[in-house]
Computed example of a mutant assay.
Amino acid sequence: MTYVVTVDICIPEGTPELDPLQRAGAVALVEDGLDAVRAVEGPDGVQVDVLDTIVAVHPGGALLKVVVDAPALEFAEGSVQVLVDELLERTEVLADWTIERCEVELHQDLARESLAAADGPDAPPDDLALRRARHTAGAPSAQNAGEGADGPDGAATKARAARARMLELAAELRAFPPAVFGVEADDDRRAVPAESARLAAGALVHATDTLVDELFEDVQVLAQEDATVAECEGPLWHLERLPDRYALQYDARFARRFLVTVIALTTRFTDGSFQHLSCVAEELALRFLLNEATTTLELHDLLDDHVSTALANLADALCIDTDHDRVHHPTALLPFTSWFTPFTEDSYAHPSTTDEPEAAPQ
């Protein structure tokens, strides 16, 4: 079975953050180390095949997505842990880096349902499109349909839990103080309560993980079909919402670069180093993130006028137009080859995104 293992590796505590040159070097070292491995001997001597990897380095370390073929989740996580441990150990400049997380991320409810119904009538459908529709709709299985989980009491309990989780996550969005969301704003039309600002901030953090995982799935679909978005027959979460005029250019390579851009941007949001949007791709990424946060809040019935205003205030502060569901802002219509080009000399550019693809006919 194929698993996507997420690995967070961090620089030693107390050491200076990586500068752009160091980040470029770290990307090369990690990518080369992972590319050299095709299989890993996991726990109990089980061979686990490495199918694909994506590396995004940030000032405090790196985020890895490692796709493996393993007989069970435990073997997937264990083998990737061994792989990354050995990579760090044999690479002198990375030897002091540590693994903070190495896991297959599963939504608890979906994981429980899959385990309970693995061989029964409620097993998740094999067809990816059906899985996506089921996941998006949040359809309950027959197993829990009679438990009242979606009744009034259950819905209220879920909403309270979601609110508490969003408020807890808000502290992780270090780049934006409450004032950016409109707390204590002079204009009454833009002013929002502090809790509404925290809900908006927490939703953005929550949406980050969802967006990264779904974009990773988009990368895999395009890679498996060896197709562009215009040619792809499989379901895509997000890339179909990019400007249509370049749909034939959105291949797996582009999708990887865009995914790394999202990871680099959201990392700067959470580590507090964000200064401004650096390129067109980051503008597009932010629109996707705002849309994902809005969807998350709506799903949990947390999107009231104040929270909507808080998100709009953030978008205004970053000069992002959120009036349209599809991404057709004028900057998105700049030549495709310039989407990953930094706006200014001091704009941040992730090393994995700066290698321009060959120019395509416009």
Rank of each mutant, 00 (worst) to 15 (best):
E358K: 14
A359E: 15
D35S: 13
A28D: 13
Q81D: 10
A117H: 10
A62K: 03
H306V: 02
S308N: 06
F254K: 07
A285H: 14
P124I: 01
L334W: 13
A28R: 15
K65F: 11
A170I: 01
L64R: 09
A175I: 05
P121T: 12
D19M: 10
P12T: 00
W339Q: 09
D251V: 01
P12V: 02
L265V: 07
A149N: 13
Y250V: 05
G42P: 00
T341Y: 05
H58M: 00
F288Q: 10
L83H: 07
Q143K: 02
A129W: 02
C102K: 03
S141Q: 11
L110T: 10
A255C: 11
L18K: 00
D150V: 02
N313E: 10
H306M: 03
V93D: 09
P124S: 14
A95Q: 15
D150M: 06
D321P: 03
C319Y: 12
L259W: 13
P243G: 03
H107Y: 02
L284G: 10
A139R: 06
F181M: 03
Y3W: 13
L167V: 04
T344I: 06
E282W: 15
E74C: 02
D251I: 08
L333W: 15
R326K: 09
G182Y: 05
A145M: 12
T295R: 08
H324F: 11
G25P: 01
E13K: 04
G61W: 00
G45N: 12
P43I: 06
P59N: 00
K158P: 01
D346W: 13
H329Q: 13
A230E: 03
G234V: 03
A72P: 09
H58T: 08
E147S: 14
V82M: 11
T53G: 10
R101Q: 11
Q108E: 15
W97G: 06
P140E: 07
R256M: 07
L302Q: 00
H238F: 12
A164M: 12
H135R: 14
